[in-house]
Design a protein around this nucleic acid. Structure first.
Lengths: 206, 206
DNA sequence: TCAAAACTTGCACAGCGTGCAACAACCGTG
DNA sequence: CACGGTTGTTGCACGCTGTGCAAGTTTTGA
């Protein structure tokens, strides 16, 4: 796999656990009190950690909530990077993004989309996550394709793909308040549908 | 035109002026000290207004900087709304967005893109502006097309169009530090190019 | 076993964002 | 013009945010 020089000692594990605990605490508070109506001190207390340590891990309460989104996009990037290089680019991406629906805690992602609807800071954090993912995917694509392709082509393509994926997830989140066994397949279908529209140049409003 | 019940008294004008003055002060400070290294108090002082009044107009220093972006998107929405309804949707949008390059202070927009590159909060504010514009355009399109078209189709389409426009502007901003007479046409060409790629389903990396 | 490296914590401090109440500018009406 | 209602501005107070710093504590590797 693509392991970056990894000494999996106690330290690394502790940090991962702490990070998770903080994010979990934030999510719990957001569920019980509503997003945007709790303080960093509360999160820290729930996570069993000092206020100062919270800020060693996250820049804001919203960023902590946003860890789930971040990990989803991390997964998407990983899957895309592992894809074989022969196929047409757009088809490769359709395959990669439809596969991301097997991420854990799928329901929580929809939940976060819904929370962001009435919480500007959280929405901004999410948009930022997508933006950074976009940058990374653009880099990956340009490395894969070499110098022969224009930067504008790649950025427009990747941006559009992510926009369609986002639209599919939002659509899904809006209609799937309580996810069940089939909702993963449901989301996947929507992503494929949106990306197929893109491949067809949106010629057919179907 | 589409005037919303407008009593153009001294009050309205004062508010517009104040808003402009604050945004202008913020931009000046960002230019001289770099974005993110000045306080709201400084902006307020430069604008000849109290700190409290600043917060009556903007939610943060970055939002103040972002007024230019906001007005650009406002213009885009207006032009799109004024477009005749007969043509294919995507062609209508290509026309509308390429026409937005005639906005005032075009150079400042590129400047803001470049500032956002190393200022997370400003970047988030800009992304948020684009997101809200997307929502409004989606509404406009759905009103125009009626209930016959799927929500996913519209959101995916509008998201992609905006992504391509953004990509074009970023590309342009990166290569055009000091805009001259021709740079408006340059930007317009890039927007048309990116949106044409979209219409062709990105089939040809050209 | 021990010292260096990495992480946590408390503290202090500047700055942020907002509710509130007093004040000032503007508006329409008579 | 005058005057009351409406709308915008300002100062103040208060809690929360985000960060540098220095003193602890835990982990690491030798």
């Amino acid at each position: 796999m693509a392991e970056t020089t990894e000494p999996p000692g106690r330290r690394e594990q502790n940090k991962i656990d702490t990070r998770r605990a903080i994010a979990e605490a934030a999510l719990t508070l957001a569920r019980s009190q509503g997003p945007g109506s709790f303080t960093v001190d509360q999160i820290a207390a729930h996570a069993g950690v000092s206020r100062r340590t919270f800020f060693n891990y996250f820049r804001s309460a919203e960023d902590a909530l946003n860890l789930r989104t971040e990990s989803f996009l991390e997964l998407a990037i990983g899957i895309f990077a592992a894809q074989p290089a022969g196929l047409p680019l757009l088809d490769t991406m359709i395959g990669a993004f439809s596969a991301t629906t097997q991420v854990e805690h799928l329901g929580a992602h929809g939940e976060l989309f819904r929370m962001a609807a009435d919480n500007p800071e959280l929405l901004r954090a999410q948009l930022h996550s997508w933006e950074r993912a976009e940058t990374r995917i653009v880099q990956a694509v340009e490395e894969r394709l070499g110098d022969g392709v224009s930067h504008l082509y790649v950025t427009a393509l990747v941006g559009s793909v992510l926009s369609c994926t986002k639209a599919a997830m939002q659509d899904w989140a809006g209609e799937t308040p309580e996810p069940d066994d089939a909702s993963g397949a449901d989301l996947e279908a929507r992503i494929v549908r949106a990306l197929s529209l893109l491949r067809d140049g949106f010629a057919n409003p179907a």
